[in-house]
Simulated scan of single mutants.
Amino acid sequence: MDRIKLRRAIARTPLAPVAAFPKRLRTIARYDAKVLRSSVRWLVKSREHHNYTYDLTPLSRNHLAWFVSVICDIPVKQVRAYLDEIESDDTLRQHLLAAIAESDRRRLADKEIRYARRIGWYAIVRAARPKHVVETGVDKGLGSVVLAAALLRNAAEGHPGRVTSLDINPEAGYLARVAPWSEVVDLVIGDSLASIAALDRPVDLFLHDSDHRTAHERREFDAVEPKLAPGAILLTDNVTITNVLAQHAESTGRRFLAFRETPANHWYPGDGIGVAW
């Protein structure tokens, strides 16, 4: 009996799990070794302790382009142009590098500028041209600056807009406090639910990126619902953890899609973008 026939014969016997164990062990060992290498490299080279930044793999970036294309109903080539636009914005990149270097929190931030899924936020804002964006959860302000960059490009094309950035931490948003990006950012410090209730103009695009507990995420979407403009877009940065936005979309008659990013050369498995529209 040749080797192939022998393996097939063993596969049909009670010895199959035992025979397969060495191959299964090699498979998991190779996977764990890859994760361990990237983890050790990150521990040595990175300073970040949360809100990790990284680039996307080329495949993940391409899937993100198609994701935005479907949601915004525009050609994928246009989406790719938007992604290239934010990633090649050297003025923004130099500002971020300088702001990080001058910050009191510079010892907890990397010197490399990597946007990850935020390039998807940028492309959606460029395509949808919202007049008023609201984001909850600011941290350093990287997302705020990305949103502001898209709004400034839109304004240059005759479609002005502003972003209201909500965070409970008074030290949040230091990356978004420099012109010209700060000129379209309204940074509001306080509880997100109270701040949403106080909004005085319709919301065209809402992004949940604050407290990621399920109950709080649900309360934010419930709170913003009466504030939304017709055709508003809802985003969540919590889509890989909860089903809150999908449930909200179903209960309000919207469509829903989710994208999960794949980081390049990083131990973290990545987050994603959930969209209801």
Rank of each mutant, 00 (worst) to 15 (best):
L56M: 15
W66T: 14
H49D: 14
R105D: 14
H95F: 14
L142Y: 03
H50Y: 05
R114H: 05
P160V: 13
Y54A: 14
D55Y: 08
V79Q: 03
I113H: 02
A150P: 06
I168W: 01
P75G: 13
A101D: 09
D167V: 04
A172E: 04
A101C: 01
D139E: 13
H63W: 13
A172M: 02
H132K: 07
A149L: 14
A99D: 15
R47F: 02
Y115S: 10
L59C: 04
I119D: 03
D167S: 09
Q94F: 04
F67D: 08
L92Q: 11
I119G: 02
V68P: 06
S144K: 00
T53A: 10
W66K: 12
N62H: 07
I119R: 06
Q78F: 08
S165K: 00
A155Y: 01
D89N: 15
L147C: 01
V134M: 06
W121G: 01
L147M: 08
N51P: 05
E85L: 10
E157Q: 15
V133Y: 07
H95R: 11
R177V: 12
T136R: 00
R114G: 08
S46Y: 08
V138E: 13
N51W: 14
H50V: 03
D110K: 02
P130I: 09
R107V: 10
A148P: 03
A127W: 02
Y82L: 08
L152V: 12
A156R: 14
S46M: 09
V146S: 06
G158R: 02
H95W: 11
L59R: 13
A123K: 04
L64C: 10
T136H: 01
T57Y: 08
A172T: 04
L92N: 07
H50D: 08
R106Y: 01
V163E: 09
A109Q: 05
H63P: 04
D55E: 12
A116P: 00
G120K: 03
V68M: 11
P160H: 10
E48N: 01
L108G: 09
S165L: 10
R106N: 13
D84Q: 06
E171Y: 10
I100K: 13
